[in-house]
Design a protein around this nucleic acid. Structure first.
Lengths: 195, 195
DNA sequence: ACTTCGTTGCACACTGGTGTGCAATCTACT
DNA sequence: AGTAGATTGCACACCAGTGTGCAACGAAGT
């Protein structure tokens, strides 16, 4: 029923992913629809972006709270999180870009819950001497998942290679020793399947 | 003689740093000058941005080639580089934002030499088993100095604290063990002066 | 006083994007 | 056939930013 609306949302994620400054017209034609139609579903550009963001936040918080409840060590939890989020990270990478710029304020607000969950996780890791403590949890968590999205963006994201690279790199940055990091990702069925 | 021109450049770095989408008008009034005057010095917005970038590239390549010639170990060289570049990193953080967006192509091209020098350094470190090898040198170097600028941006950059944090964090990400990383920055007179 | 040069203050044309209004059309369902 | 809802095709007003043209102004140096 809302098939057009959904298609617009999907396509918008792609188009904005390639160029965060793309206009409603670009999105419309990419969705095989006329500009006017897009405005029929989303009264303003901000509405579109906001909906997109809400979607992403919902998905991510769901994954995060679920994994967090498993009670595993912080670094293992982090690995699990990246593995689960990775398939959509590339699609949602636009959010990082959107956070600066016109709608920065709005996006930032919506992303709040995710930020909090991640900061809590990192703080837990720091408390257990699993993560490094040279930076406050709030900042370190931002940098770490910013890094993950940056890798997802950098076209080194071919297949599962990117996921492994992103996981290891972010773990290193969080202060996990290289040997432990490799052991952690090595444990994972996902990466075991690679080559 | 070119005192106005210089002031415009300085101020433009500030203004664009806070909002990469700021217009010529914003820059002009921030420089205490009329929009028309800015166009007198820089025929187009791109000219302004390009000049700014060239400035940054010149400074950075100078520092990098000088330090690189000292022949120290790759990780020590990296530490030295961050320490030397840090004072201006916050001012030049715009470049990272500017790299995406309208003039991305042009900026990216100008930044080429810096990218190469950094990639070479990281590659050298990887060859000597000083840096991790889970990612190609080109990408790893980009991520590492992107990280430095990100920290410079995140207002955790109060005083010399930020420099220390940025150095340690980037070293960790490059695969340097925490103990070694701390020893390296601990050696530096700059960070020794902190607290 | 005269000239030069940078600066100013308009006015202007142009572009590209946003958001709206409305009648016409198409499609699906009954 | 008839109706409802979504989609289309235009036209429009509007805004913000860019870049230009030109006459006037002001301070410096000669």
């Amino acid at each position: 029923m809302n098939e057009t609306r959904d298609r617009i949302l999907d396509v918008a994620l792609d188009v904005l992913g390639e160029n965060p400054d793309a206009g409603m017209g670009d999105i419309a034609s990419a969705a095989g629809v006329v500009r006017r139609t897009v405005y029929g579903h989303f009264p303003s550009r901000l509405d579109l972006v906001r909906t997109l963001t809400e979607r992403a936040v919902t998905e991510m918080t769901a994954v995060l709270t679920e994994i967090n409840a498993s009670g595993a060590e912080a670094d293992a939890t982090w690995v699990e999180f990246i593995a689960r989020v990775w398939p959509v990270a590339h699609r949602y990478r636009v959010l990082l870009a959107l956070r600066r710029g016109e709608y920065g304020e709005a996006i930032h607000g919506l992303l709040g819950p995710v930020d909090e969950l991640l900061a809590d996780l990192v703080e837990r890791g720091q408390g257990g001497d699993v993560f490094a403590q040279h930076l406050p949890a709030g900042i370190l968590s931002q940098l770490a998942y910013g890094l993950v999205f940056a890798i997802a963006d950098s076209e080194a994201s071919n297949g599962t290679r990117g996921a492994r690279a992103a996981t290891i790199t972010s773990l290193l940055m969080l202060g996990v020793p290289e040997a432990r990091a490799i052991a952690l990702v090595g444990d994972r069925p996902t990466s075991a399947a690679v080559q």
